[in-house]
Design a binder for these strands. Structure first.
Lengths: 249, 249
DNA sequence: ATTCTCAGGTGCCTA
DNA sequence: TAGGCACTTGAGAAT
């Protein structure tokens, strides 16, 4: 495929905000937050309407190189007989240079930009489901706040238990790790300090890494496991407190 | 484009391990770790040689739906006059169903699978650069171990300082956050307990979030900032200890 | 196969 | 704009 013709196709696609797919032999350099080099080889370059650009090899889901909200240029180098697609941006300052020695195919498509993926089973949704009925987790538990911003982070749920103690809840949709425990610890401390009231911290997750459980115990926090299912909406099916010997409150 | 013809193209591409790009109007359902639904719309479906599959809208770098190492099938539904591409896998058990009501274009390309991206500036590389000359960080600092596996994680660097104290070093290639501090804290405690020797913990990062620095101080850990540059190899340019008032050792 | 961590993480939201 | 964090995180390395 002629390079001049290719250049015209790409510029046209950019102008029309069409999804543009370039197949060809290229070498790719990236410089910015890191530095990478991809030797000459056959790849697919993808430009989207929002000026995101990515270079895909014939493996993996993630592209080898990528940039969002790029300034994209496409120029011919008459000396080297190559077509050079450059993507640049500031903040962070970075550059992708794809030098095509051969263009195998170019296709552009007018695909309307949309954003209508409906996702069920996110943490946010589980959070809402839990807030609907906290007594499910423990009798007498009443919701106070959700997604409360602290200096040290964002606390999933704050509630009050039957004995009037504050309860900080950190919810995870998958196995809890160290991060989950240290998050909960931070929020529990924050609440304790702010309110000066005895505060419990509960980590709620489908499972927990053994070492994270050790840390949790050390911090005097509690862990409950739970199951959930996802159909039309997320639904919390059951809570199991027996995995951990908890002092009876 | 005829659906029957499309089906043949896709099956052929799968057989030949070609990168296959399908453009068309489709609705996509995902069920597995979560559940998602994408209403009918024009999109690009990408199948690669390693049987990874992804559905891209005309925006963002990441696909709306994706699966790696999938079992991919492609069948006609004569009643609904649709072409159905299904991707399945076990562990985790999940399914993507893309139902095409219209195929706009299909192209397949024989792109050899390769894996030759050379990336400079990874944390691993910076780690190696630092290990080459730890005295750069502090006079008299001697490396003992690198990437040591603990029960609680993997410690970047362990060294011994001029006074014979153990030093645990956590290195970050970008701004240090809570996670970096709690990681370091864990490893420092682990080493302290194992060896029964006074142990210092040093966090080394280009910068640190203010709240993370507060936590670090609370834990009696140290923070040094550093600059690095990435050309052929990563190189640590300088270390600045003055950002924090550190007790003189 | 599980565990663990990095990533040029990306993307979303809110103060 | 920066902070904080979820993500069907993905991807690789080590156990």
């Amino acid at each position: 495929m002629k390079l001049l013709e290719s250049q015209k196709s790409i510029l046209q696609a950019l102008k029309n905000k069409e999804m543009c797919i370039v197949i060809g032999e290229c070498a790719v350099d990236y410089d910015g937050r890191a530095h990478s080099n991809l030797p000459r080889g056959k790849r697919m370059l993808l430009i989207k309407a929002d000026l995101s650009i990515s270079i895909h090899e014939n493996r993996l889901i993630r592209p080898t190189n990528y940039m969002m909200k790029a300034s994209i240029s496409c120029e011919l180098n008459d000396k080297t007989k190559t077509l050079i697609i450059k993507a640049k941006r500031n903040n962070p300052k970075e550059t992708i240079t794809a030098e095509f020695t051969e263009i195998i195919d170019i296709n552009s498509y007018d695909l309307p930009e949309s954003n209508d993926l409906r996702l069920v089973g996110s943490e946010k949704e589980l959070n809402d489901a839990l807030m609907d009925d906290l007594s499910f987790l423990e009798a007498g538990l009443k919701p106070i706040n959700q997604q409360q911003y602290f200096r040290t982070g964002i606390c999933d749920i704050i509630a009050e238990d039957a004995k009037g103690r504050l309860v900080v809840i950190e919810l995870k949709r998958r196995q809890a790790d160290y991060g989950a425990v240290t998050q909960l610890k931070r929020y529990a401390e924050e609440v304790q300090k702010m309110k000066g009231v005895e505060t419990r911290g509960i980590l709620l997750a489908p499972s927990i890494r053994k070492s994270a459980l050790d840390l949790l115990k050390k911090y005097d926090l509690e862990y409950f496991s739970y199951d959930f299912e996802i159909k039309e909406r997320s639904k919390i099916k059951g809570i199991n407190k027996s995995q951990m010997k908890i002092n009876e409150y």
